[in-house]
């Protein structure tokens, strides 16, 4: 164990500069991310706000009362959104681990084609994909069901999750797993104690993507189950088109809340991906 050498003045100065720049860029990033929400926030508390005025002419909590009112359907919409996004997230992660491993670790004939097919639904306009799927789902009785919506959300969610995990596994060395097996751990124990901790940051990022993509879906949900499943995004779009800007602003803020919460939780893993890479091979 050796003590780190005391940094020389030049190095200390450059370190201070780095810290300063990092702080500055964080502030800029925060403005960039937060600024678009400020009008929404103001709208949501406005009573009356017309063109030439910089700020509303009157303030009100009406829209937030509307949101909180059971008749607004906000709570059931959040429930529907979660009932779809959470299973989509779990399923995406469950698919992405083995699929990402196959793509990241192994070379096999047709690999490029598989990668392309996973991406394909995201290249073709979502409307086209959803329209095609809708016809099939109508035939199989999946239209207007939660299962149908989950399956249709899974297409874009899973493809992102798989690509993230393929990147994680491309930098992953399975030797530790072999050591674990030889030490007497079965496949499940090896996955639980050796593989999972190594891929965990990447898995969090993949899950975050999967969740947010599902949470955001609008057209696919409407087309597959517009009559029965009312997710928050459907509510928000309806309000935005309805002319009640105050309500639309308040609903939008409710809509982005989980994204912000998840992002905060996952932020440490977003930076942690590189740490997982550093552990990787070669």
């Amino acid at each position: 164990m050796t003590e780190p050498a005391p940094p020389d003045p030049m190095e200390r100065r450059s370190q201070r500069l780095t810290t300063l720049l990092r702080g500055l860029s964080l502030i800029l990033l925060a403005i960039w991310l937060v600024a678009p929400f400020i009008p929404l926030l103001i709208w949501s508390f406005s009573f009356h706000w017309t063109f030439p005025h910089l700020l509303p002419e009157g303030w009100s909590l009406r829209s937030w009362q509307d949101v909180a009112n059971p008749s607004s359907q906000v709570l059931p919409a959040i429930r529907d959104s979660l009932l779809i996004a959470l299973p989509v997230t779990v399923l995406s992660a469950l698919i992405a681990i083995p699929a990402g491993r196959a793509l990241g670790q192994h070379r096999f004939p047709g690999k490029r084609l598989v990668e392309f097919l996973i991406l394909a639904p995201n290249i073709v306009p979502g409307l086209t994909v959803a329209l095609g799927i809708q016809i099939a789902f109508l035939r199989y009785g999946l239209a207007n069901t939660f299962t149908g919506v989950i399956l249709v959300h899974l297409v874009p969610s899973m493809s992102y999750a798989v690509l993230v995990m393929a990147g994680v596994f491309a930098n992953y060395d399975p030797q530790a797993e072999e050591v674990s097996r030889s030490l007497g751990a079965n496949r499940w124990q090896t996955f639980r104690h050796v593989t999972l901790p190594a891929i965990f940051p990447g898995l969090m990022v993949a899950s975050l993507f999967a969740f947010l993509i599902s949470w955001d879906q609008y057209i696919a949900t409407i087309l597959i189950a517009g009559g029965t499943v009312k997710t928050l995004s459907i509510l928000v779009v309806a309000a935005a088109g309805g002319g009640d800007r105050a309500l639309a602003g308040a609903l939008s803020l409710v809509f982005i809340a989980p994204a912000v919460v998840f992002l905060i939780i996952a932020s440490k893993y977003l930076t942690g991906v590189s740490a997982a890479r550093r552990l990787g091979r070669r």
Binding site: D173, S180, S182, L183, H193
Partner: peptide
Amino acid sequence: VPAERRGAVLMFQNHLLFPYM
């Protein structure tokens, strides 16, 4: 006999230890 019950333990040159433990 599967690897975990064979009693033949491996040690590699790199990735010696599980880093999370």
